[in-house]
Design a protein around this nucleic acid. Sequence first.
DNA 1: GTTAGCATGTAAGGAGTTACATGATTTT
DNA 2: AAAATCATGTAACTCCTTACATGCTAAC
Lengths: 191, 191
Amino acid sequence: MARRGDTIELAVLGLLHEGPMHGYELRKRLNLMLGWGRLLSYGSLYPALKKMLRGNLIEEVTGTVSATPRRPRITYQVTERGTSEFHRLMSEVGPAAWEDDNFDIRFRFFSSTDMEIRLRVLEGRRSRLQERLDRVQRELAMTQKEVDRYATELQRHGVESVEREVRWLSDLINAERGTVGPQAATATDND
Amino acid sequence: MARRGDTIELAVLGLLHEGPMHGYELRKRLNLMLGWGRLLSYGSLYPALKKMLRGNLIEEVTGTVSATPRRPRITYQVTERGTSEFHRLMSEVGPAAWEDDNFDIRFRFFSSTDMEIRLRVLEGRRSRLQERLDRVQRELAMTQKEVDRYATELQRHGVESVEREVRWLSDLINAERGTVGPQAATATDND
DNA sequence: GTTAGCATGTAAGGAGTTACATGATTTT
DNA sequence: AAAATCATGTAACTCCTTACATGCTAAC
């Protein structure tokens, strides 16, 4: 899955914000998080960590709190630079924020941004998907010929999935708007 | 989207089976087909076509049928070798057939295989997704701590989407099984 | 006449996978 | 005792994207 740009970097910064971690665990969490696609490999993660170390975004934690130091495992935590970089990335609005993979990561750490940014990103994502639907519908109208059973079914299922995600986003947008206090009112119970 | 292996190759072979085409159009059709993710670039398509030419899977069509030869545009068609390679690829069962991207391509050209293969692929895909659901559910039970609103919502939406796809696959499997004659009986009209 | 779309390519580079290499610890 | 899992890395390679390079044709 062409995770473009520094998706890993953002994800790592986000996770480390929830507490120090070593590479192996980071990988597991990452895979659980964006693991709906393929798994992230060590050959991908460790070099990324090295790069972040060089960039002073993260640092090794020497004083292990745990009583049983099983074995030299390197625990990382974010630096101040890492924190500000994380917030900078999370504040980005624009295509980078709502492209397929990136969106999930942003969303996962939405708590670290304020509502204004959240709304911009959610709306950006929604119109992105809407554009796709329009484009498909338009091009489908032109090339009507396709009558293959499976091609049609695939198209139909695809459109339905995207429409579903649009509705999901709309609900989230409404929820954001409706949230004045800290927690949203439990308005719509069913579905 | 890490389109692994020769996804493009299979897609191109499949499309050219529906008639000769030149690169530019191939790309448009490809993008419409697997375009739910990112777009395929020329830098990706043309070298792939060259490679397929070298492998004798496709060949250039010299005699342009069209009356107005706008400009030297290279039309391709499948060779015999291309056809047998296509059928070989389409007959594959196993992980390669039901990995995320690959599955969509196979499904798109399902008409070119027989029911036995279709069922194996559909069932393989379904159990793959089921495994993912199980894994997430298992790991979610262990690390209950997560109470972040957005993390939870993302998880929930992800699970729901996969469950939806599992139901879709189940319907397709039933439809395949219910098909005895050449065309399926129009048993279930609604949805 | 100038913008948008058609049409084909190449070169450099990024991001990630696979396979390799190693070894400790926990579970069966 | 063996197998699984924890744990960290490196090197080679593949696939694909971005940016560059070129030029024709249709529409506005």
